[in-house]
Amino acid sequence: MSEGATHSRTADADAIDGRLFRDVLGNFPTSVVAITTTDTEEWPHGMVVGTFTSVSLEPPLVSFLADRSSTTLRTIRAAGRFCANALAGNQERLSRRLATGQARERFADTTWQPSPLGNPVLDGIVAWVDCAVEQVVEIGDHLLVVGRVRDLRVESLKTPLLFFRGGYGDYMSSAGQLLDSLVGWHEIGR
C-alpha cells in the first residue's frame, strides 16, 4: 500500500458513521458478563458488559469498559472492587434486566452469594473473577477499568451467553457438533 493510501484511510477514519461502526462491530461476537459490586449498605449493584478480557498473567489483571455515565461504575469505583460473572446461555433475561433495569430492581428475583471480596456471585453462571480495582483509564466516551484478580472459579460447564449481530445466543462448540455427528447422535429422533 502506498503512503498516500495510508494517509487517506487515516483521515477517513475520523468521519466514520456511528451506525456503520456499530453494525460492523456487531459481527464480532462478545461474551456477556455481569459486573457486580455492593455499596456501603451491602446492596447489590450490577451492569452488563461485552468488553471483559484478560490483560496480564503476571500480575493477574483483567479489564472491562464502561460508559462514563454508569451509576454502577461510580459504585464500583467507590467500593474499589468488582466481580465479573460470565453469564450462561440460559441467562438472557437476567442480562437484559441488569443492562436496562432500574438500579434497585436489577437483582429482583436473582439469587447470589458473596464472593471473597463481598461482591455478588450470581447463581447459575459459568465462571466468576473477583477483583480489586487496580486502575481506571479515560478512553473516549468510556472508562477502562483494570482489576487485579484476587480469586476466581469455574461454577458450571454450561455454555456461555454471547452477543452477536444485535442479538443473544449461546456458544455451541463446532468440535462438539462434529463428535455428535461421528457418534451418530444427529440421527437419533429423526
Rank of each mutant, 00 (worst) to 15 (best):
V137G: 00
A132L: 14
P114R: 11
A86E: 06
W128N: 07
V154Y: 06
Y171Q: 08
F64R: 01
A84M: 01
V149I: 15
R106Y: 10
L117N: 13
L143R: 12
L98S: 07
G167V: 07
L94M: 12
E105D: 15
P114D: 07
I125V: 15
P44T: 04
P120G: 06
R97A: 14
L122M: 03
V121L: 10
R93H: 14
S69H: 06
G147M: 12
P120W: 08
N85V: 06
C131Y: 06
D170W: 05
V126T: 04
R148M: 10
T100Q: 08
T75D: 02
F163I: 05
R77S: 09
D123I: 01
D39S: 08
V133C: 12
H142L: 08
T111C: 10
D141F: 06
G89K: 03
F163E: 05
A88P: 09
A86M: 14
D123S: 14
L65W: 09
S156Q: 08
V49Y: 04
V126L: 06
T71L: 12
T71G: 05
L161W: 12
D130A: 04
A132H: 14
G80Q: 05
R96F: 00
F82A: 00
D130Q: 06
L152Y: 12
D170E: 15
P60W: 12
D141N: 15
P59M: 04
S173L: 12
G50A: 05
C83Y: 02
R104T: 10
V62P: 08
Q113Y: 07
E58F: 02
L98D: 03
V154R: 14
R165L: 11
G80M: 04
A86C: 08
L94C: 05
L162R: 07
G167Y: 01
R148G: 11
E134G: 01
A103R: 05
P120Q: 09
S173W: 11
S95F: 02
V129G: 04
I76G: 02
V154I: 14
D39Q: 10
I139Y: 09
Y168S: 10
G118E: 11
V126I: 07
R148C: 10
R77I: 14
L122E: 03
H142A: 10
W112Y: 14
L152K: 03
V146R: 00
M172G: 02
E92R: 15
S95K: 02
E92N: 09
L65K: 00
P114A: 13
R150A: 15
T72M: 01
V137Q: 12
T53A: 11
W112V: 07
S63N: 11
R93Q: 15
L152M: 14
S156G: 07
E41G: 02
L144K: 04
L144V: 10
L61D: 05
T75C: 09
F82Q: 00
V126N: 03
W43V: 11
V149T: 13
Y168C: 08
G101Y: 12
L157T: 15
E58A: 11
D151A: 15
A127L: 08
R68V: 13
D151K: 02
G89T: 02
L152Q: 12
F82T: 03
L162I: 15
D67F: 13
L87G: 01
R148L: 14
L65Y: 15
N85E: 09
V133F: 13
S156K: 05
Q102W: 14
W128T: 03
I76W: 04
